[in-house]
């Protein structure tokens, strides 16, 4: 008597009558030596794992996980970037054919096709041949995909000044900076419009924070006069004495914190 989709069971059990197990090929069919998984092979695997772990721990010690300042929705100057493994999608949306009017194409259709194709690869590439050279279409599509992901990631990353971005976004607990607003240097700081870009407590606004910088007095004097990066030259408009006071004030505040 057939049940369900033609299934037959042994007596009243759940065991099917026509038991046809899928048994993978025995490795003895492949020429060569096999090895016991436990403990022989696992030992080699764990040795690789141990070396990997040491390298990984060195990485975590050498490069502390970055943390920027607390989220500040009013920070209009902030350049938002996703984590690096989403940079290629981020970059894709910058292009005209994928952004703007074609947003749906760039954000949904292209990634959807790519990842959908990856997901359904076994059904798109149905041939029994496994060698990459014997299935040129599949192989070349994948190589094309990998190259474009690498290239898009590179394009996105190359346009960012990572060091300046990190320097401008130091993690400073809110309310922890209290600069000496009574000093002569602060008066110069206020009078020369430094305050508009670097904030009332040197915490940074449209310009970077001046706390946690590593410049000498002379270097700061030079930057104040000649500018650096996005900061234009000629911002400072005062006497040489005031310039000295300003630079010493900034260096002193950095030593305090």
């Amino acid at each position: 008597m057939k049940k369900g989709k033609g299934m037959q069971f042994v007596g009243d059990s759940r065991i099917t009558a026509d038991k046809k197990k899928f048994i993978p090929k025995d490795y003895s069919e492949y020429p060569g030596k096999t090895e016991a998984f436990w403990p022989n092979f696992l030992l080699k695997e764990w040795l690789v794992g141990a070396v990997f772990l040491v390298g990984f721990l060195c990485l975590t010690i050498a490069h502390p996980a970055p943390l920027e300042g607390p989220a500040d929705p009013t920070d209009a100057a902030y350049l938002p970037l996703p984590d690096w493994y989403f940079l290629f999608l981020y970059q894709l949306l910058k292009y005209q054919f994928a952004g703007g009017d074609f947003f749906v194409l760039g954000a949904i259709v292209i990634p959807g096709l790519a990842f959908g194709g990856l997901f359904l690869a076994p059904f798109l590439d149905k041939g029994s041949n496994r060698r990459p050279v014997k299935r040129p279409i599949t192989t070349s599509l994948m190589i094309l995909g990998v190259i474009s992901v690498f290239w898009l990631t590179y394009e996105a990353a190359a346009h960012v000044d990572w060091e300046a971005k990190a320097a401008a976004n130091k993690p400073i607990p809110p309310g922890s900076i209290q600069v000496d607003t009574e000093s002569d240097g602060y008066a110069v700081y206020e009078a020369n419009s430094c305050i508009q870009c670097h904030g009332g407590n040197l915490e940074g606004a449209s310009g970077p924070s001046l706390i946690g910088i590593d410049y000498s007095v002379d270097e700061i004097k030079d930057i104040a006069v000649n500018g650096i990066g996005d900061m234009p030259a000629g911002q400072f408009d005062g006497t040489e004495e005031e310039l000295q006071q300003l630079a010493e004030f900034i260096v002193a505040e950095n030593e305090d914190h």
Partner: peptide, 18 residues
């Protein structure tokens, strides 16, 4: 932090565009 907040803002805008 700032990068978290602004990246999520962008992500959510992309989601909104669907």
């Amino acid at each position: 932090d700032n990068k978290a907040y602004f990246a999520t803002l962008v992500t959510l805008e992309i989601a909104e565009g669907v």
